[in-house]
């Protein structure tokens, strides 16, 4: 979970770095910044930080999009609110708390571990442990119940006789 989030952030950082580089090459970072700034967001906003914060906030109307990716009216309002709080010097934690105070923990894509969501966090690991336990038991039971198949003496003689016969004929 943690690694996924940090990779996302790194890739967001990387893509913005590429944008900035392209802007510098094409002459004038200011003009390109204006082009990259979504409408309604004041110039000079730390877009990387805005992207990082809003990527962690769920759009309440379109529940499988973050407010960074969504164009729904409420998502835009909430993103503007993030910009405003950033401008007031609020920390990332304070901004996320602002959203949680209004919309509940559901608004976070990476909610902190708590009693109410412990099953979700621990469930997959418990299931893997149960699976390993079942598999080990099944293997042990099979090994104990079925020793390697043995031919009886008569079966062996009959097989050998047939083999000899076919070898002679061939």
């Amino acid at each position: 979970m943690a690694t996924r989030t940090s990779t996302d952030k790194n890739s967001a950082r990387a893509s913005l770095a590429v944008l900035a580089l392209a802007a510098a090459l094409s002459g004038g970072a200011a003009s390109a910044e204006a082009a990259a700034t979504p409408p309604g967001i004041p110039p000079g906003t730390d877009l990387v930080r805005l992207r990082e914060i809003s990527a962690d906030l769920r759009c309440l109307v379109c529940q499988n999009q973050s407010i960074a990716d969504s164009h729904a009216g409420l998502a835009i309002d909430l993103r503007n609110q993030v910009v405003k709080l950033m401008g007031e010097g609020k920390s990332d934690e304070e901004i996320k708390q602002y959203m949680v105070d209004r919309y509940g923990e559901f608004v976070l894509y990476d909610p902190p571990f708590s009693v109410s969501n412990a099953v979700l966090w621990a469930g997959p690991f418990l299931l893997v442990l149960v699976g390993v336990w079942v598999a080990l038991r099944a293997i042990a039971a099979r090994a104990a119940a079925a020793p390697a198949a043995q031919l009886s003496a008569t079966q062996r003689e009959s097989l050998e006789a047939r083999y000899q016969k076919s070898a002679n004929e061939g």
Binding site: L60, L74, D77, Q81, R102
Partner: peptide, 13 residues
């Protein structure tokens, strides 16, 4: 009009 009170009340639908 701006929907800011809506945000303060956690309005989403």
């Amino acid at each position: 009009r701006a929907g800011l009170v809506g945000i303060d009340y956690g309005v989403y639908g």
